[in-house]
Write a protein that binds this DNA or RNA. Structure first.
Lengths: 345, 345
DNA sequence: ATGAAAGCGCTAACAT
DNA sequence: ATGTTAGCGCTTTCAT
């Protein structure tokens, strides 16, 4: 009849089920993975045994045998930032459609943390990794990919590597933002970069330059670079004091993202500067709440959901017959609202 | 010298390293897990072999042997909602401190999806699960916990179960919100609940009732329940039209969370109703951007980071000698800003 | 300090 | 349709 009760460790495994149903382990395995191949009667018997024993399949064991893992790792700069939160959510949704799951990490712009996460993920033999890298050097990721863990870059160009990438045209985004301000008449514009080292931001900076040139202006005279502590969420707010001390006083601020713009708005309000009369502010991403800020935020919209879904798509299709490593580029879009206006004359 | 090159599957394992360093597999294992026990010379030799072979440890295999998993699953209602995003971020930080990682899921208030996630997590033998459950019945989770997967409830009371829980005093929160509005003179208040079935929300609803009673008023006359499609992010905005059609016209709206409040603000703006002159709005959570909304949002603050960290703490300490299953309660706090005011007379 | 051997829970040929 | 056998990559007694 039923076999032994105590299965070595806590729960009962395939072995106990086999014993209880008087079949071999492989039959149980088949019930799990190829039900059609098992006779209906035996199958029922096995299924009953599973219920009785509270059997829970251990997938980790299966993966040891070579089955592809169903967990995917994502590393973003900060998962609490609404932009990344929305992207990650889109990734999650796509993964769930394929029965996969997402291990989500925030690097906080720290190389060491990024490194640690990558190592953990590789050791856990994940199905693949989606990453918005801090490290400007891509070779570590290329090697990782070569060792068998597919990598998809998020909002980061693949450069001359053969990695997959899903990016936004950040150069264009920066250009859009700057051109908008120039058109309004601004001639002294702060480019507030959390960390210019990040590819994404530097591309936008180049775009801003380009907009100046296109307007027949000297970027060096128009654009002022201000950095704030990258990780600090109140960095942008603190940076406002710096900006207000500048002479000649700038009339507009281009922010890294909408969350940073919120900080800037707060700082300006504290300083009694009205927006846009005293200072124009432009964000980036167009997160859900951007339109309800005070004032409604002019910003550059990113296709967050598409970005995330595309990244997951690319990752999951790695290994497919027709799969080709490629770079997908999404184009940002200027959304003019009320935080930008003509400079005070 | 060096052993064979091709190690069955792609990468080289402990076996290849052992061969290359002319030691046994157990010695390699010791270098990995008990370095002190290996002679410095041999250790060096092994380490060199590892480098040469690009050895990457496979932790999945280790866990098969009974090592506790280092992945924790979290299931929230919607990871893109800034409230949960911040909580999840706090969980992540605490986990990383212990070398663990977080599998993040959104149930979107769907029982089926919650169920699916739980099953996946159990099958993957995770270290434990942190969940803000949709299912009002806790017995499934109790059984899960009994089968060996520790469960910590997030923002959900443990009731009479012996699960761990980290909760907020939602009753108090609802009371704070309603009392504030009553004090301002509102006598017709909409309680806009995404889904009253969720424990969290119904507790707040009870709190609102209590505030009415405390003010000597009949809750049934003061409070109006309006529901919007739970999952739809534009539900709250759409609900505004409903609310504005009500007679007598309510003068205030209590929202489920700040994200919903953003939708309500948008809806009101579209309808040309000014806030707070035409309608008072109160949110919940006090997310980062709440203070910069138009108008700055009155809301009930939750200790998001503490909530998340405490949940992770509780989960990680499960199994510790002095560990006791318990319920931690955080107290919310009213933050009065500019979206609430006296009703138009 | 190092090695030999057994096995974690499951899958996958290959029999029967 | 079902069973037998041989591992996946690593850890872990227990010897030596």
């Amino acid at each position: 009849m039923a076999g032994e009760r105590v299965p070595a460790s806590g729960r009962s495994g395939i072995r106990e089920v086999a014993a209880a149903a008087s079949v071999s382990e492989s039959t149980v395995s088949n019930v799990l993975n190829n039900p059609q191949v098992v006779a209906a009667r035996t199958r029922r018997r096995v299924e009953r045994a599973m219920e009785e024993l509270d059997f829970v399949r251990n997938r980790a064991a299966g993966q040891l045998r070579g089955a592809p893992s169903s967990v995917v790792g994502s590393i973003v700069l900060d998962s609490a930032n609404p932009f990344f939160a929305e992207v990650a959510r889109a990734i999650e949704d796509r993964l769930v459609e394929s029965g996969c799951m997402q291990l989500l990490f925030s690097s906080d712009l720290h190389l060491a943390r990024e490194h640690q996460c990558l190592k953990l993920l590789e050791e856990h033999a994940v199905r693949g990794i989606i990453i918005n890298p801090v490290n400007p050097q891509l070779d570590g990721l290329v090697r990782l990919s070569g060792r068998g863990t597919p990598v998809v870059l998020l909002d980061r160009s693949r450069g001359d590597t053969d990695l997959c990438a899903v990016t936004a045209d950040n150069l264009r985004g920066g250009e859009l933002a700057a051109a908008h301000l120039l058109e309004l008449g601004h001639r002294r514009i702060v480019f507030l970069g959390g960390s210019i080292t990040v590819d994404t931001i530097s591309a936008r900076r180049v775009g801003a330059d380009r907009a100046c040139v296109a307007a027949g202006l000297d970027p060096a005279e128009v654009l002022v670079d201000i950095r704030h502590a990258p990780a600090a969420i109140d960095g942008p707010e603190a940076a406002v004091d710096h900006i207000l001390a500048l002479r000649p006083l700038p009339t507009a601020i281009i922010c890294t993202n909408d969350t940073a713009a919120v900080g800037v708005l707060r700082g300006l309000r504290r300083a009694g500067v009205s927006v846009p009369a005293g200072m124009s502010v432009i964000g980036y991403d167009d997160v859900h709440f951007a339109s309800e800020l005070s004032p409604p935020l002019t910003t550059v919209r990113q296709a967050k959901a598409s970005l995330g879904r595309a990244a997951a798509d690319l990752l999951l299709s790695d290994g497919d017959p027709g799969h080709r490593h490629q770079e997908l580029v999404f184009t940002p879009e200027l959304v003019v609202r009320a935080s930008t206006g003509n400079p005070r004359t």
